[in-house]
Amino acid sequence: MPEQRTTASRGELALAVHGTEAEQHLRLLYDWLTLEDDLRGRLRLRSRPVAEGEMGGVLDVLTVALGAGGTGALIARSVSTWLSQRRADITVTVKAPDGREVSIDVKRSQDPLAIIREVERLAAPPQE
């Protein structure tokens, strides 16, 4: 199976799910995030290119268009809550357009304030 790539375009955060049944969990995360009013219309599931021998593309990234301030905190809070309800051993990696990233697993989701700070930092433009 090809390696998952977590890529973000300018003005987007990219979220990837790693672990068992990653594609299914990515769809569930997408469904969960669409319940947030402030994220509606800003979410998109992307497939990686079809590899040789595959019948179709595999979903590998959920992108979130960044908007007004607070998007990072909203994403972090929602992802933390979603992860805390999972029984599977999965991790969500959030990547900023400039390549900075943070990984959140089921165990770390128990400290949502720390995760919110980290994802807010990713959502903010990099300081030079």
Rank of each mutant, 00 (worst) to 15 (best):
P126K: 06
V92Q: 06
R10G: 08
D105S: 14
T63S: 15
R27W: 07
E101F: 15
E128S: 13
R108P: 03
S103V: 02
E21H: 08
G41F: 03
G70S: 06
L28V: 09
A68F: 11
R100H: 13
A124D: 03
G56N: 08
E52L: 10
L43T: 00
L113S: 11
I116V: 14
R44N: 01
M55D: 15
A8R: 03
L28C: 04
V61C: 14
A22P: 01
R27Y: 01
E21N: 13
L33N: 07
I115N: 12
H25W: 10
T93Y: 04
L62G: 06
R10S: 05
D37N: 11
T81F: 10
V61N: 06
G41K: 01
P97G: 04
S109T: 01
V102P: 07
G57A: 08
A88R: 05
D98M: 02
P112H: 11
T81R: 09
Q85N: 13
T71V: 11
L29Y: 01
A51S: 10
L74V: 09
R77T: 11
S109D: 08
T91Q: 10
E120N: 00
V119D: 07
L28M: 04
G11L: 02
A124G: 04
G41P: 04
A8E: 00
S103Y: 10
M1H: 10
T93D: 07
G19L: 03
G53K: 08
I115V: 13
V119P: 08
T7W: 08
A8M: 03
L45P: 02
R86F: 11
L29R: 04
R87Y: 13
A123V: 00
G72W: 02
T20S: 15
W82D: 12
W32V: 13
V79D: 01
S9M: 14
G11K: 05
Q4A: 11
L29M: 08
A123Q: 05
I90S: 03
R40E: 12
H25Y: 06
I90F: 10
D98V: 08
P97F: 03
V17K: 09
M1E: 12
R42H: 09
L83M: 06
S109G: 11
L26D: 01
R108H: 07
D89M: 10
V79K: 01
I116K: 10
S80R: 03
E3Q: 09
V102Q: 15
V119Y: 08
R44W: 00
G53V: 04
E120K: 00
R10I: 08
L122Y: 07
D111I: 00
H25D: 05
D111V: 05
R121T: 09
P112W: 03
L45A: 04
G57C: 02
G11Y: 04
L122S: 02
G67A: 13
G99E: 01
V61S: 10
M1A: 14
R86A: 05
G70D: 13
I90Q: 01
T63I: 05
V58E: 14
